[in-house]
Structure formats: C-alpha cells, structure tokens
Design a protein around this nucleic acid. Sequence first.
DNA 1: GCATATTTGTCCGTATGTATA
DNA 2: CTATACATACGGACAAATATG
Lengths: 229, 229
Amino acid sequence: MASSAWVEELSGERAALTRASTAGRVAEILRSRITEGRLPPGTRLSEEDIGVALGVSRNTLREAFRLLAHERLLVHEFNRGVFVRRLTVDDVHDLYRFRRLVEGGVLRTTSADAPLDDVRRAVEEGESAAAGGRWVDVGTANMRFHQAVAALAGSPRVEESMRHVLAELRLVFHVMAAPRTFHEPYLAENRRILDLLESGDVAGAAETLERYLTAAEAQLTEAYAATGC
Amino acid sequence: MASSAWVEELSGERAALTRASTAGRVAEILRSRITEGRLPPGTRLSEEDIGVALGVSRNTLREAFRLLAHERLLVHEFNRGVFVRRLTVDDVHDLYRFRRLVEGGVLRTTSADAPLDDVRRAVEEGESAAAGGRWVDVGTANMRFHQAVAALAGSPRVEESMRHVLAELRLVFHVMAAPRTFHEPYLAENRRILDLLESGDVAGAAETLERYLTAAEAQLTEAYAATGC
DNA sequence: GCATATTTGTCCGTATGTATA
DNA sequence: CTATACATACGGACAAATATG
C-alpha cells in the first residue's frame, strides 16, 4: 500500500478508457505521464497499485507494460517489476548518434521540391512561443521541428523510430528542468536550417543540424552528469 | 481443432522452455519459425491451439505475441487475432529506403581505423558458401554482412533497428524462394565494398552500397509483385 | 543470517463482446 | 439471421522470487 500521490491521480483517468484496446489505452495514459515528466525515471510501477487505480486487471496492465518496455520508456526487471527508464550518459550519446545519422541523412537526401510546410510551421511556433515567454511550448515546438525533419524522408519507419528516440530523450530533458536555457539557443539554428533547405542547400542544412546536435549533446551530458544520475 | 501441421510440430519445442521468461522463450520459438519461413505470411496464430501445443497459458502467449507484433513480425488485428505479417510492396520500398539511409550513412561516417573484421568475415563466409553451392548459407552470410556494416556505427540502437529491418525483409525473401539467383550477384558487390572501406574510400563504399540496394529492391519488388501478394 | 511479508510469474475459469460461416 | 468460434478482459489462485524486519 502507501500509494504515492501520482498513483491516486490516475483514478481521474478511468473515464478515458472505455473503448478500443484496454491495454493500449492504459499504455497511452502511462506514456503521457512519463513523457511529461510526472513519472520520473527510476519510479517503480506496481502492478497492484496501478491496477486498482485504473480499474484494470493485472493481466491487462502487464500487457500495457510490455508495450512501453518495447518503446524503452520502461525497463522490466525479471521478478522485480517495471521501472521508468533511467538513461545513462551512454544512452544519451547513442541517441544523439542515431539522430545525427538519421536526421542528417534525411536532410542530405531531401529533394528540392520536398514539402517544407510542417518544418516551417514548427519553426514559427517555436519563435512565437519564445516571444511570449512560453518556454515549455518552445520545447514542444523544437520536438515537432525534428519530427518534421524526419518526416521529410517520407518513410513511416523513419518517422516512427524518430518518435521513439525523441520520447526517450524526454526522459532526460525533464530531469534537468530549465527548459529555457536548453531550448532557446536552438531556435535560430532551426530557422537557419529551414532557410538553407528553402534555398536548396541540403548539404549545408545537414551540416548545420549535425553540428548543433553535437553541441546540444555536449550541453546535455554535462548538465546531466552534474545531477549525478 | 484442426490444428495444422506446424502447430503440432511445436510440441517438440516444449522441452526448450523451462528456464528464464516463458513469454520471451515462446516469442523466440515463434520468431525463428517465422524468419525461417516455416510460418508463411498471412498465417493465423490461434491463441488456443498454440497455447496447448506449447503448454503455456493464453496470458503468457499473448505477452509473446505483443513482443513479436512490436518487431513487426506479427500484426495484431483487434478482436480478430494475430497473423504473420504480410508485407506490401510499399513496405518493401520503405525498408530499402531505411536501409539506404542507415547503411549508407554509417559507411559514409566510418572512420579509417574502424574494425572491419566482422565485415570481412561475412564476405569470406559468403564466398566460401557460394563456392560450396550452399545457397542458403550465402543468404545468411549476406544478412551478416549488412548487420556488420550497421555495427560499424558502434551504436546499439542502430544495430537493433537494422536487426529488425532485416528480420522483416526475410518475410519477403522466403516467399520468393530461389535464394541463389537473388543473393549470388551481391557477393562481388560486398567484396568490393569491403575493399573500398579498407582503402579508406568511404564515400565510394557508401555509393556502391546504395546503388546495389536500389537494384536489389527493384529485383525484389518485381519478383514479389509477380507472386501476387 | 533468518523468518516473514510483499510482489511478481504463471495458470485457470469464466463472462462478454465481436467477427464470420 | 442465427450459430459458432474466438478474442478480450476480469478475478482468483498458488508457487517462486524478492524485499523487509
């Protein structure tokens, strides 16, 4: 027992799970809790507590856990339970290497007539959010920017793997707080990449992105290591 | 009732699942059956039949199904059951696009001192298998070659996504049989890519690979479309 | 180090809803 | 349209592993 506060909050979500696959809906609820940082890395997810909080059986809940474990948002330790993933510095390094490979590769092979609307929209959203001081929205717009870049490949699989990678990275973003100082510097870079793409300089866009991802990684790992995770 | 032949064969595997996670082991058994082509695309996997054949409960089996569905080897149709994935021509196109992006990108960013041992081993295995007329082994060696190329990134995530992509592609390979005519032409290309890497010409290696992947895709989709899947 | 309590892993029976012959 | 087969989801049970005192 001794359900912590966030477990009790879950009861408010019970109304939301009345159609489609129960396990899938449970997974979605937990996924948003995790990516929004309300379930910090290392948190243990008790089958019993969450089951009663959401009003689903243990079997169903376990299916939801499997789904999230495959997305690497949870880790399943045999006979011990499931925990919100705690990323190591090596994980962060790997995620950025993956991003440089994929995002850079996508930009480099983008054709001149590729539809840049989503990319442009994400850049503008970020700029207007920054102008209004809505730093959390700046972060979301930044995520959307990179998702839109990946989407330029026109490949469902590329899009999906990017979605997973970005979701994983949120586990780190939320730990270090300070969304402003982390996301703000990259607004101008995003704009610059968009401009380069519109002028047809795909190689320049790719290089700019790869360089800035490397810088972001360094900034992130430094701050992350300082927290002692 | 009316368990088809392959379901009955499963009973022989029951001894294999006595340790570690039951669901994981069930998944592994089914995975090998699928990638080896013994469970052709479109096959329906009945919870009841397979459950009794392997001697596991439906709950456990469903967990195994989730694992394989996430690897895209099975598709889960809500309220209808799980089926061995049937790839469309669009899927094949997407898989090759992904491969060109990732494998090409990896080669292009390979450093001069990267360890090429695994790549070389795969090339040699393929050549000796071809010399001995073991065409199935030629196919496996070819898979290993591409897996080794992906491993040059030194990234667990890149390796894993490549593993999944190659497993998916096997669903198509097995449908069109004729392993010799499909894999043989690429032995020389693999050797050439290795040579280019050893001489430090990473751009040349990447270009060769990308071109040959495009050719392989065309050959595959043509033969695949002819089967009417 | 030991005994106990808790939690997970696995299985079973069953009720309900959904798809298909 | 009805009947049948099957998937979904629940709840209970017990052994085994783990955590706790």
